[in-house]
């Protein structure tokens, strides 16, 4: 068997293992999906009326306008929450004896990690379906064509893939499960420090400089543009660039962490 087909076969085996874990213990998956839902409801019903008036858009402002504005940010927050779940799962898995067994078997080592990545990707897409469903129920009215929906799915899968590799690396780097649950915290905060909840031009200049150039702003603007027809500009290019850089760097980091000699 060639190296690549070995890696694919073993990854599929590891994916089945991770999916079984998720189906048997769905509480983490449900928790990851409910967190962004809570934020969505909070922002729509508590802050939405006032924030919507401040958008200054053409669609009359208020809560109805704000649902449309905030939904893409909440969808990206779903990815960040899922990343936290991945880091926890990976760190917990590394404390299990079974990982030591995998290390003494002639398997494609990276499959332990790719199993987690693909499993988390499916978990995140599941969460996103729930979040989008709830958003539609509370008044989210995207005007995307089927092609745009498909493109949205592709963009979200790409971003999720990158951030999950990052959280796999964070989960491996963490010495304890508690640390692993803290490391991805900044990812949850980043949508706030970007265009997730309010337009960045309402921020002070120094904060705006950060907000415009951090990865979540192009992520959110790309999704917003695809779903609602707002201008995308060069956001799509930046979103792709950030995703490639994050995915590649995180993959290399995670692989190095996993292959290091556990005795050193």
């Amino acid at each position: 068997m060639s190296t690549l087909s070995l890696a694919l076969t073993d990854s599929a085996t590891m994916l089945r293992r991770n999916v079984k874990h998720m189906l048997r213990y769905p509480s983490l998956t449900l928790m990851l999906a409910s967190m962004p839902v809570v934020f969505l409801l909070l922002f729509v019903y508590v802050f939405g009326g006032t924030l919507g008036n401040g958008l200054g858009g053409v669609d009359g402002g208020g809560r109805a306008a704000y649902v449309n504005y905030v939904a893409p940010g909440i969808i990206l927050m779903t990815v960040a929450a899922a990343a936290q779940g991945t880091a926890i799962s990976v760190a917990m898995d590394m404390t299990e004896g079974i990982i030591a067994r995998f290390r003494t078997m002639a398997i494609a080592r990276v499959s332990v990690l790719t199993g987690h990545v693909v499993g988390s990707l499916l978990q995140t897409l599941f969460s996103m379906v729930i979040v989008v469903g709830v958003a539609l129920l509370v008044g989210f009215r995207p005007n995307a064509t089927p092609i745009e929906w498909l493109a949205t799915l592709g963009v979200l899968a790409m971003i999720t893939f990158a951030l999950i590799w990052l959280s796999v690396a964070l989960g491996l780097a963490a010495k304890t499960v508690e640390a692993a649950s803290n490391y991805p915290m900044p990812l949850i905060i980043l949508p706030f420090l970007g265009s997730g909840f309010v337009p960045t031009d309402s921020m002070p200049a120094w904060l705006r400089a950060f907000a415009d150039y951090q990865p979540f702003t192009p992520f959110i603007e790309t999704v917003r543009g695809l779903l609602l027809g707002t201008p995308i500009g060069n956001s799509a290019l930046f979103a792709i660039g950030w995703s490639v850089v994050i995915a590649l760097a995180s993959y290399l980091w995670a692989r190095r962490l996993f292959n290091r000699d556990p005795s050193r």
């Binding site: 293992r17 079984k20 874990h21 048997r24 213990y25 299990e96 004896g97 079974i98 030591a100 067994r101 003494t104 078997m105 002639a106």
Partner: peptide
């Protein structure tokens, strides 16, 4: 080496969730 050996450790290496 890995292809030729089996290892049973002091701390059992089973997947507890399966």
């Amino acid at each position: 080496v890995r292809a030729a050996i089996g290892v049973t450790g002091q701390f059992s290496a089973v997947d507890n969730l399966l």
